[in-house]
């Protein structure tokens, strides 16, 4: 059965996120992801509150990075969470957002190696091993927890470029793909499958999740209005190759980038075209979103993650997904 995940950004206060988390769990979502950026509220505090107020939903950081947070600390936090709610915790690990990290003076160097080493260290530490690790990015001389971590914790690797996607397929129990359009998902899944093959695993061994920018409303205009700001930022941050794949005029993308840089929101948002919305979000009425999700599933994903903005009214949007979308995929 298709899994549905939901992403929350702890820029929102904890009580809103927990309210929605309880609602999502009751509505049939199986996974909950909380983003990790230094300029929002802390991911592990938010996840701890989630653990206390929910009963069955699987949750984890979506995603943390090894530059800002040392993988030994990540292992400690996740292992502790797994004591609180055994079997419900997963780790989402990626290379991090370059712009955000540079803002705190952290350089993103050797991202593939950093992620691979971080996952290695995480698995050894949460496996209760005494760790001596001499990697190209991380070095651990002698680390062991003074408590016994419980169980194996699945690791999802967040990936976008072809090499990271391959690595994710090779080392991950799951992969989080930042993509909304079937063309991009298909492209990504091919790279992931190559990694799965290299890792000597079967495709079903790896949960491949499309981490989407999502907006649903019965009124298409309202759904679109909510998606526009998020899509503007995605377009501004996308490489030319990706924009060209969707036939997006590079000049228009550059205009949006310049407007965002100048904090001219209205100019930036007015530059977002329907093509951009279609390429970089899953947006529309419940029926339209259902059709798009069905296409993405055909492209090879096993989990669909509903990400920001979710809708103009998040509570209503979760109800729509619960009542009109998820039931379409129950077989």
């Amino acid at each position: 059965m298709t899994k549905f995940g939901i992403e929350f950004v702890p820029r929102e206060p904890y009580w809103k996120i927990i309210y929605y988390a309880i609602q999502a769990e009751r509505g049939g979502f199986s996974n909950l992801w909380v983003t990790d950026h230094f300029n929002n509220r802390n991911v592990y505090v938010t996840l701890t509150a989630t653990a206390v107020y929910t009963d069955k939903i699987t949750f984890g950081p979506g995603v943390t990075n090894p530059y800002m947070v040392n993988p030994v600390f990540t292992a400690q936090a996740i292992a502790t969470l797994n004591e609180l709610t055994p079997g419900r915790v997963v780790l989402g690990m990626g290379a991090g957002d370059k712009t955000t990290l540079e803002g705190v003076g952290v350089e993103v160097e050797k991202p593939l190696t950093a992620v691979q080493e971080a996952v290695d260290i995480f698995r050894k530490m949460t496996g209760g091993e005494s760790v001596a690790y001499n990697g190209a990015v991380f070095s651990v001389t002698n680390a062991k927890f003074l408590f016994k971590p419980k169980g194996q914790i699945p690791v999802y690797v967040g990936a976008q470029g072809p090499k990271m996607l391959e690595l994710a397929g090779k080392i991950g129990d799951g992969v989080l793909i930042n993509a909304c359009h079937p063309k991009d998902v298909e492209y990504a899944v091919n790279s992931v499958r190559e990694g799965i093959r290299q890792g000597g695993k079967k495709p079903d061994d790896v949960d491949v999740a499309a981490y989407t920018s999502f907006s649903v409303h019965e009124d298409l205009k309202k759904a679109t209005k909510a998606a526009v700001p998020v899509v503007a930022f995605i377009v501004a941050g996308s490489p030319g190759m990706l924009l060209e794949r969707h036939g997006i005029d590079l000049k228009k993308a550059e205009e949006i980038r310049a407007a965002l840089k100048a904090n001219d929101w209205s100019r930036a948002f007015s530059g977002v075209s329907p093509e951009m919305i279609g390429a970089f979000s899953v947006c529309g009425t419940p029926e339209m979103c259902t059709d798009r999700i069905a296409l993405l599933l055909k492209s090879g994903i096993s989990q669909f993650v509903v990400g920001s903005p979710i809708g103009s009214n998040v509570r209503e949007a979760i109800n729509l997904i619960t009542e009109k979308i998820i039931p379409q995929f129950k077989t």
């Binding site: 206060p13 009580w15 309210y19 309880i22 107020y53």
Partner: peptide, 12 residues
Amino acid sequence: SQVANVILRQWQ
């Protein structure tokens, strides 16, 4: 936060 926590407990 006290009020928020009561609301969340009641919702739970």
